[in-house]
């Protein structure tokens, strides 16, 4: 049996009909066509699918679409405004915080919450804050610098 759901994604109203078992990440990717949110592990380990739901960074492979009924969702596609990159997006570019780019959307969305909670984190706090996200390319070195870049830009 399908359920009607509606949510606000990147400031736009979306509604659709889904089976109750459909994962939020599949709704975002397959139904809404927002493929910037990636699936790396299907088991909440890698963090590639991280999005913001009502302001909190969540792994969208572990949330059913129906649980997002009425929620405010932000995905990587909603980060830049009026063509201007978010400081975190800018930081990842400036500090070479990405290589293959697959983990990057999840890293950026996780970092949004990290900086929301702690606008001036130490290196150790950044590393701790990114523990839920795997990157296999960068050794995290420049990802840490990217978050530091954004923190100082937003300060």
């Amino acid at each position: 049996m399908k359920h009607s759901i509606s949510m606000t994604v990147n400031g736009k109203e979306y509604s659709g009909e889904v089976e109750p078992r459909v994962l939020l990440v599949h709704f975002i990717r397959d139904h809404l066509g927002l493929t910037g949110t990636h699936i790396g592990c299907d088991t909440t380990q890698c963090g590639a699918c991280t999005i913001l739901m009502d302001g909190a960074a969540i792994k969208s492979c572990t949330v059913f679409a129906v649980q997002a009924e009425g929620a405010q969702i932000t995905t990587i596609e909603g980060m830049a405004s009026n063509g201007e990159l978010h400081p975190l997006q800018e930081g990842f570019h400036e500090e070479h915080g990405l290589q293959c780019g697959f983990c990057t959307p999840g890293m950026i969305m996780t970092s949004v919450e990290l900086l929301n909670q702690n606008p001036n984190p130490t290196e150790a706090e950044i590393r701790h804050g990114l523990e839920g996200n795997y990157c296999r390319c960068t050794g995290y070195h420049n990802i840490v610098k990217a978050v530091q870049y954004a923190a100082s830009k937003q300060a």
């Binding site: 990717r29 066509g33 493929t35 910037g36 990587i76 596609e77 990842f92 570019h93 070479h96 780019g101």
Partner: peptide, 22 residues
């Protein structure tokens, strides 16, 4: 030189195989 390929990846516009729908 900063990477020219970055923009599509940091804005969610990369094009990986699983993103393709036919």
């Amino acid at each position: 030189v900063k990477r020219v390929e970055d923009k599509r990846f940091i804005t969610g516009k990369g094009n990986y195989v699983d993103d393709i729908k036919i």
